[in-house]
């Protein structure tokens, strides 16, 4: 995480309002296209408005589209989302196809995604279906009937195997396999 990200709003991976469990609701509620009618920097957005905007509004009836012509000021897209987020995007000198793609991004995202820092890449309201761990959770059932002290349960098997022991085991294994070969003859 760089220093810049410390000022970003932190977030978890969440669907707003259990979206999609019941029915899907498009999270973009309104979009404002601000542009200049004569300036060259607004060329791409003017092309978009002339050619694609009506289709966009027809296909996404749930999004309110506003146009705001402003004389000699840079073209801007302002998207507002149901969770209250507002995304401001400068589209100065952007071409028609670029703007089409950015509109698609704004339409399909669920809020100010790029302005949030994810704390984790997973999230759950329900951390465990097993319940919390207790000393009895993974206990061997054999212990219930054993009489202690018992060398079987008292043995110290927590240390890792030593090199000598490993060699001995390897040697024994080899000896057995050799014997097997002889009996085969």
């Amino acid at each position: 995480m760089s220093n810049k990200n410390m000022f970003m709003k932190s977030a978890f991976v969440r669907a707003p309002l259990q979206n999609g469990v019941g029915r899907y609701v498009c999270q973009l509620q309104r979009i404002v296209l601000k542009f200049c009618k004569s300036h060259g920097g607004s060329r791409g957005i003017r092309d978009f408005i002339e050619q694609d905007l009506v289709d966009f509004a027809k296909q996404n009836a749930s999004v309110v589209v506003y146009l705001k012509p402003r004389r000699h000021r840079g073209p801007v897209l302002v998207a507002e989302y149901l969770n209250g987020d507002r995304v401001w995007m400068n589209v100065q000198n952007k071409t028609h196809s670029e703007i089409t793609k950015w509109m698609e991004v704004l339409r399909t995202q669920q809020g100010d995604i790029s302005g949030a820092r994810l704390r984790k890449y997973q999230y759950t309201d329900y951390p465990s279906v097993q319940g919390p761990w207790t000393p009895f959770t993974f206990k061997d059932p054999e212990l219930n009937v054993a009489t202690l002290p018992d060398p079987k349960f008292g043995a110290n098997n927590r240390l890792s195997i030593s090199a000598t022991e490993k060699l001995r085991l390897m040697f024994e294994k080899q000896a057995i396999s050799e014997k097997d070969v002889k009996t085969g003859e």
Partner: peptide, 15 residues
């Protein structure tokens, strides 16, 4: 840039 009629129409369509 606010149009109550358009907002109400979009509200029904959204749901």
């Amino acid at each position: 840039e606010w149009n109550l009629e358009a907002e109400l129409y979009a509200f029904g369509k959204r749901l």
